[in-house]
Amino acid sequence: MMRLPPFARLAPRTLAEAVEMLADQGPGAAVVAGGTDLYPNMKRRQVEHHALVDLRAVEGMRGIREEPGGGISIGATTRLSHLAGSSAVPRALAHAASVIASPQIRNMGTVGGNLCLDTRCSWYNEPEDWRTAVGFCLKAAGDVCRVAPAKSHCWAVASSDLPPVAIALGASVRAVGPGGERTFPVADLYRDDGIDHLALLPGEIVAELLVPPVDGLRVTYRKIRRRGSIDFPELGVAASVRLAPEGICEAATIVLGSVASAPVRCREAEDLLAGRPLTPEVIEEAAAAAAHPAKPQDNTDLSHVYRKWVIPIHVSRALQSLS
């Protein structure tokens, strides 16, 4: 049986306490909530933590609230099944939550956990003896990337479903750390680095996801994977458009998941849509451009060539559903 290595578990009751505990434990400690991402990684000995700060019991971190000024606040330990079933949040966000992993994992996993999901790679998310056989990689004690050995960059993939749609919604993250709290756009949570993929400050904890009022924004999320359940996305496409009454696209956001170590904005495609109607021709043009910034590597289930090929198709379908 795959078992967890020993660690000290701390169970703070308040966020301030959690921040303090995390700081006290120093490097090598981490936060955990649902555990559905972290525990398998620890069982495979990909990561080691001498201490885990368990956020489940932290008061006020769970739940979906309507903000006084409009918009929605979603606590980081809100469970994914709760988000998936919520009618208070934008439908695309609930949909994205509803297609994460499996029913059981959605009952356990949290919004914060999905936002902070470790990047994944088919050379990394393997048991320890497998990685011993192949040789360790940059992300875990090795000195070379197994995907692109010439590079000193880690290409592990951002494989979570919520970030692309959260970015398309213009959502922000509130994080709390030893230096206080700050709120910033979801996109700024990520760095295109498979190892150091979260742009959190040392000791900082994601506390909530803030979704602005939808206010006429049309949003969608498409998840591409081999099976209708359990699997991580091989490609995620989130898109939002704001249409003027005559059908002209005033603004568009297109975000790809699972094609890099961070969600990828498709600015060229967005610019092609701006000020134009969402006709089939315009959509095709933008969809083709959407594939440009994506550089999928051969480190997920379906091949990188395939994933690159189908980006325009799924972007096109996403935009069609919004037109």
Binding site: S122, N125, R226, R227, G228, S229, I230, D231, F232, D301
Partner: peptide, 10 residues
Amino acid sequence: LDYKLPTTLE
């Protein structure tokens, strides 16, 4: 996860 057994949905 990587070796794909069909689920109820496939």
